[in-house]
Simulated assay, not measured.
Amino acid sequence: MRYLVKQLAGTRTVAEALGVSQRTVERYVKDKIRRPRADLAQRL
Rank of each mutant, 00 (worst) to 15 (best):
R2V: 07
R2N: 07
R2T: 04
Y3V: 07
Y3E: 12
L4E: 08
L4A: 07
L4R: 02
V5C: 09
K6P: 00
K6S: 08
K6H: 05
Q7A: 10
G10N: 03
G10I: 01
T11H: 00
T11Y: 04
T11S: 09
T11G: 06
T11V: 09
T13C: 06
A15G: 05
A15D: 06
E16W: 02
E16Q: 12
E16N: 13
L18R: 03
L18S: 02
G19F: 07
G19M: 09
V20D: 06
V20H: 04
V20E: 04
S21T: 15
S21F: 01
Q22K: 14
Q22E: 15
R23W: 05
R23D: 11
R23T: 14
R23K: 15
T24Y: 02
V25N: 02
V25Y: 00
V25C: 08
E26S: 13
R27N: 15
R27K: 13
R27G: 08
R27W: 05
R27V: 03
Y28M: 09
V29M: 05
I33F: 02
I33S: 08
R34A: 12
R35P: 00
R35D: 13
R35A: 15
P36D: 03
P36A: 15
R37I: 07
A38E: 14
A38Q: 13
A38H: 12
A38T: 13
L40M: 13
L40E: 08
L40I: 14
L40K: 00
A41H: 12
L44F: 11
L44I: 14
